[in-house]
């Protein structure tokens, strides 16, 4: 029982915090945090586990969002099927570009993904404008029909759905951390030659990690599309390419809970500061620099040891394997 608690305590704590936030903070804010943290977890997995930094996450976010939007605008009305369509779009896109991208070194990987984000942006804005309606975007809020049990067309019930999806995703990534696949990802990050000479395929491991991470990102795009009820090319704007990277660096690069903490911090700062001044980036930028200089581990990476000591008191029961992806 104690071991099970040790294993899950981070997830329980993170989601208890999110549930508590629902009671005190505006619903749109909490929903945004949930979607943003799902958006960032894929990027965090790629960076922390495999060593790939990606500035192309908006591309996969947009592919998921447009997959959902196309279904709900042109073909059907059920938002759940729309989410499945977005998820499938992200999976297929990752499977197509993955074999090309994962052969690259991390720096080239970052740039080629950024290039993909630019390509997707112009595809959605210009080339496919007859279908995507260009800058006006696709509006399908009124097309969606209410669904039984959990009506995700209503923001309050959408929160419950996004919360369950988020919890499932974190449990999945926690499981991945503990699998041999997770260990292989860490191994390929630090010593691909050795892994190869043990008989493992670096390519297969990286491709699988890439597909998992970007399908998760596409899922975040689908959730965003259903929540807003509209999608425009702005979602894949290259100007927003660094957002998930900033969030995970802020929360704690390569940690499992960093994306949640980073999303809360980033969305919170953005929300509060943008109410005070128009050009909120002018404040957020320097703030991020200060936070990162204060602790390279990010907020979660710095707080985690303190929280463990506080929660477990007796150091001997502190889990050997912390929740840090890096530290596995």
């Amino acid at each position: 029982m104690r071991k099970a608690f040790d294993w899950w305590w981070g997830i329980a704590l993170a989601f208890s915090l999110l549930a508590a936030m629902r009671a005190f903070l505006p619903l749109p804010f909490v929903n945004e945090i949930l979607i943003f943290s799902i958006y960032a977890i894929g990027c965090s997995f790629l960076l922390g586990r495999v060593g790939f930094i990606s500035f192309g996450q908006p591309a996969y976010l947009a592919i998921g969002a447009y997959g959902t939007a196309f279904y709900l605008f042109y073909f059907g009305t059920n938002p759940y099927i729309g989410i499945l369509a977005g998820l499938a779009s992200g999976f297929i896109a990752a499977l197509i570009v993955g074999p090309l991208f994962v052969r690259l070194r991390s720096d080239y990987f970052a740039l080629v993904n950024l290039a993909l984000a630019v390509i997707v942006f112009f595809l959605m804005q210009k080339v496919l404008a007859p279908i995507t309606k260009g800058d006006n975007g696709l509006w399908f809020l009124t097309n969606m029909t209410s669904t039984p049990v959990l009506d995700i067309t209503r923001p309050s019930q959408f929160f419950v759905f996004a919360f369950i999806v988020g919890l499932a995703i974190w449990a999945f990534y926690k499981y991945l951390d503990d699998t041999l696949f997770g260990a292989c990802c860490l191994a390929t990050k630090i010593n691909e030659d050795k892994l190869q000479f043990l008989g493992y395929s670096n390519f297969s491991i990286r491709l699988a990690a890439f597909v998992i991470a970007n399908t998760t990102t596409a899922l975040a795009g689908s959730l965003y599309a259903v929540y807003i009820g509209a999608v425009s090319p702005e979602i894949t704007s290259p100007a927003r390419a660094a957002d998930p990277v900033v969030v995970i660096l802020l929360g704690g690069a390569g940690t499992l809970y960093g994306p949640i903490v980073g999303s809360i911090a980033y969305t919170g700062m953005k929300d509060v500061i943008s109410k005070l001044i128009g050009n909120w980036e002018m404040i957020i930028g320097p703030l991020l620099v200060i936070i990162m200089l204060a602790g390279e581990k990010g907020i979660w990476g710095t707080l985690e040891p303190w929280l463990k000591t506080l929660l477990f008191r007796n150091k001997s029961v502190v889990p050997q394997k912390n929740s840090s992806i890096e530290g596995n």
Binding site: L180, A183, L186, A187, K194, Y200, A208, E326
Partner: peptide, 25 residues
């Protein structure tokens, strides 16, 4: 050449698993 970011035991588990199992994805 080892995996410095893993524990000793997990380095050995990776070596063992590939040699004695098919180690498909």
């Amino acid at each position: 050449s080892t995996f410095d970011n893993l524990t000793v035991i997990d380095n050995l588990v990776l070596a063992y698993f590939r040699a004695h199992r098919k180690a498909s994805l």
